[in-house]
């Protein structure tokens, strides 16, 4: 199995990126709802106290204030845990941020079951479905400390509402130092002709490991990183479907409405091929260590490998 060096968590990379952006751009305001030491916005707050507001435990108000500041010309980053940044205040995001198409960047930490011990109430597994459903929202899931700062910078420099999903645990470094993130573009991580493994975030490393394992199985697997969930890089996906004839989509999210659903929708219209999904299936998470949970719920390299083998068998040509 390919091993990747462990890097910072994506939330830590976010916190660091924010401080750098804050130094360059005095127009950036950061809001948090009493979780700044967890979301890592605290570093920005320490350096720029006049541009940081902790609104307290009030997520609906968090989004409304973010909207009011953005309507006044500010570029606003609003952060809390992914569960509280999405479902807790969904109508506020919908009406005050999405419908108005304001410059609010919701960067949520602690997404997915890799939150671990805090359990189901704190594990956002439907956040991508919710945020992708909102017209005009851009949705990004960075994978590591190399990609996260670039995704945050792209969010800051692109007009309109963003949802960026960050995680709690340390994240393996999957990208080379010279990696260049482009909003809306998929990234070819590994060439391959028999099947394409599509992943982002915490599932990108297992997808790469699965590809290495599949090589030993005699399967030449392509790995496509899709950090931008919306808008989706349709051309890269269609190309993968044409050239490899089968896909596996792996994500730390519910099957419903996540990356897999969106990929399937595009390919159903443009290039139907066998697709399998490695995702949570109509279930909440629970307490446990992140690795234990990922193993229990099947979000592993081995599950991706098995799905790939089964999907390749379904190919008609």
């Amino acid at each position: 199995m390919a091993a990747f060096p462990m890097g910072a968590s994506t939330r830590e990379a976010y916190g660091k990126a924010l401080v750098e952006l804050g130094r360059e751009n005095p127009n950036i305001i950061v809001l948090d709802a009493d979780l700044s030491s967890s979301t890592q916005t605290i570093a920005f707050g320490k350096e720029f106290p006049d541009r940081f507001i902790n609104v307290g435990l009030a997520e609906q108000n968090l989004m409304g204030i973010a909207a009011g500041l953005a309507a006044s010309g500010k570029t606003v980053f609003a952060s809390t845990f992914a569960v509280f940044a999405t479902s807790r205040c969904y109508d506020q995001v919908r009406v005050s941020i999405a419908q108005t198409h304001l410059n609010v960047k919701i960067v949520a930490s602690h997404a997915g079951i890799s939150v671990g011990e805090d359990g189901a109430s704190h594990q956002a597994i439907e956040d991508l479905a919710l945020m992708s459903a909102l017209p005009g929202f851009t949705v990004v899931v960075p994978a590591d400390e190399v990609e996260t700062p670039q995704a945050i910078r792209a969010a800051a420099n692109t007009e309109g509402p963003f949802y960026v999903r960050c995680g709690r645990p340390k994240a393996p470094v999957v990208y080379p130092p010279d990696y260049h993130f482009t909003l809306g573009q998929a990234v070819l991580m590994r060439a391959g002709a028999d099947v394409t493994l599509v992943a982002n975030g915490l599932m990108l490393a297992p997808a790469l490991e699965a590809a290495a394992a599949l090589e030993r199985d005699g399967i030449d697997a392509r790995v496509l990183s899709v950090p931008t969930v919306k808008p989706l890089d349709q051309e890269a996906l269609v190309k993968a479907a044409v050239e490899t004839g089968a896909l596996v989509v792996a994500e730390e999210h519910l099957l419903h409405g996540g990356l897999g659903s969106r990929v399937a929708q595009v390919l159903a219209e443009r290039r139907p091929v066998p697709i399998s999904f490695v995702a949570l299936r109509d279930t909440f998470g629970e307490s446990g260590k992140p690795d234990e949970l990922l193993a229990k719920y099947g979000l592993t390299a081995e599950e991706i490998r098995k799905a790939a083998l089964a999907t390749v068998r379904r190919k008609t040509t």
Partner: peptide
Amino acid sequence: FSTGSLGQGLSVATGMALA
């Protein structure tokens, strides 16, 4: 500002006052 879903306007106004 766009409104219609009740209860949201004061938060937005507060953000503008902060700005």
